[in-house]
Design a protein around this nucleic acid. Structure first.
Length: 475
DNA sequence: ATGTAC
């Protein structure tokens, strides 16, 4: 990226000043090295988003930002409820993709002796890969119940425990879902895909806590050095993808109908208060429930695999947070509370201390912000800050962020070699697809530590713990 | 991300 187009406000804050047709500035949080790695298309896409009607304050880019479909991944934009727009491209193709992390009640010493067996057990028990299917088949009525009920539905079906629900955004069930506005094609694609990881950067990891940066917050989250955790990164699978496809197409027409100028067709949108805008929101909320139910079932499968080898294990959910959503939230804009639809695409909600939506257990310290690494690299747990509200509408990064295309990665790495190299470093990777492993090579991503350090330094969220992988089941 | 080009 050409940083001369930006005004540097501090070591970690850079502005793309608002010039017509932009209505608000673009604010990027990153260090100079991360910015230089970013494509200029990120700025172009930020300027396009900043030009949409009803946008407030600024369009934001997190330190892991890279260019995406219409709207940068690692982007945040909020629109007024009355005269703003909603965009399917602003949420992305994997609606409600997110991370959940569980404690296992075990330490590294418990895992080491049976690590190979555990990897094999998890790999056999948790479906992974493109088009992977599970043991659950949803008939139409059950599909609608799932889309309406989310993780709450999953728990009622016997996947997990009622106490899991308090540790999930929206208590595991997104209100306002409209399953009837999801196409039959989307439902058909999902019928056999519940409880599957999917592909790409999705995974299930067994991790050890190697460093704690903030003891007080770590205690509130229940993690300490040497603890073994399980993290799941997955989303709404074929259904979310189809919803995004269906509504992106529909929004091109809606934008035309309502006289919205589109700098890029991929940024198709509709007024929030229009029939089309409301239809997308209802369908998107149903897709959020699909992702929440999916991660809940995956949790159940992980528990079963652990119970078989380690009966002492007790997988307790720490938190589940999505990073591809558009949600109605109240934020302070110029000192006044306003109801806004906040698009976070590859950006994690990061509510600070005292937010009423947070579970009692950590309301005093702030929301856990779960940052996934890439195979063989660290993951982080951060916490939302009070200052994050004004800086980024309480949002932070979501992961390392790609630095290289999948195509480029395939030319540079071989999946089998990567698995062997990681194995030598004590990280067991199991994947149905060597090609998928090559596409997701750690070297194809930015340095997650640099990303997290930038989010920390910019005050978007603060570091709590560093996690290193032991086992990675890769989609 | 994705029945990785209906």
């Amino acid at each position: 990226m050409d940083t001369t187009r930006l005004t540097q406000k501090s070591a970690f804050e850079w502005w793309l000043e608002a010039s017509p047709p932009m209505r608000v500035p673009g604010i990027l949080y990153a260090n100079e090295a991360l910015l230089r790695e970013m494509d200029d298309k990120v700025l172009e896409q930020m300027a396009n988003v900043a030009s949409l009607p009803g946008i407030v304050q600024a369009v934001y880019a997190m330190p892991d930002a890279h260019w995406g479909y219409g709207f940068p991944i690692g982007g945040v934009a909020a629109f007024r409820e009355d005269d703003g727009v909603v965009s399917a491209g602003g949420v992305g193709f994997d609606i409600s993709c997110g991370v959940r992390t569980m404690h296992t009640g075990l330490t590294v010493e418990d895992i080491e002796p049976i690590k190979e067996d555990l990897a094999q057990g998890l790999f056999r028990h948790v479906p992974a890969g493109v088009g992977s299917i599970g043991k659950i088949h949803l008939e139409p009525a059950e599909m609608d119940a799932m889309l309406q009920g989310g993780a709450e539905w999953a728990v009622k079906q016997g996947y997990g425990r009622p106490e899991d629900l308090e540790r999930i955004e929206e208590h595991g069930r997104m209100e306002g879902a409209r399953p009837e506005l999801i196409s039959l094609q989307a439902k058909r694609r999902q019928a056999d895909e519940m409880g599957t990881l999917g592909s790409g950067n999705h995974y299930l990891e067994v991790q050890q806590v190697t460093e704690v940066f903030d003891t007080r917050v770590a205690e509130a989250f229940g993690v300490a050095v040497g603890d073994v955790l399980v993290s799941i990164h997955s989303g709404s699978r074929g259904l979310g993808h189809q919803v995004a496809t269906d509504y992106s197409r529909q929004m091109v027409e809606a934008a035309h109908k309502y006289g919205l100028e589109l700098a890029d067709l991929e940024l198709a949108c509709a007024p929030i208060q229009s029939e089309e805008g409301q239809a997308y929101l209802g369908a998107m909320r149903a897709a959020i429930n699909c992702a929440l139910a999916n991660r809940q079932i995956l949790t159940h499968l992980a528990r079963e695999a652990f119970a078989y080898l380690l009966p002492r294990a007790d997988l307790r959910l720490i938190y589940d947070v999505s990073h591809n959503t558009a949600k109605l939230e109240e934020h302070l804009i110029e000192g006044k509370p306003q109801r806004l639809y906040v698009h976070r695409k590859g950006a994690t909600r990061a509510f600070g201390p005292g937010h009423p939506a947070l579970p009692e257990a950590f309301r005093a310290v702030g929301q856990p912000v779960l940052i996934g690494g890439t195979m063989g690299t660290a993951s982080y747990i951060l916490v939302g800050t009070p200052e994050g509200e004004a800086r980024s509408l309480s949002s932070s990064c979501h992961g390392a962020g790609r630095a290289m295309s999948r195509h480029q990665a395939l030319k540079q790495w071989r999946g089998k070699e990567l698995v062997r190299e990681l194995g030598q470093r004590g990280i067991i990777v199991r994947s149905p697809s060597p090609r998928g492993v090559a596409e997701e090579a750690p070297g194809a991503y930015k340095d997650v530590t640099a990303v997290v350090d930038a989010a920390h330094a910019a005050g978007l969220s603060r570091k709590v713990a560093r996690l290193e992988p032991l086992i990675c089941i890769k989609g």
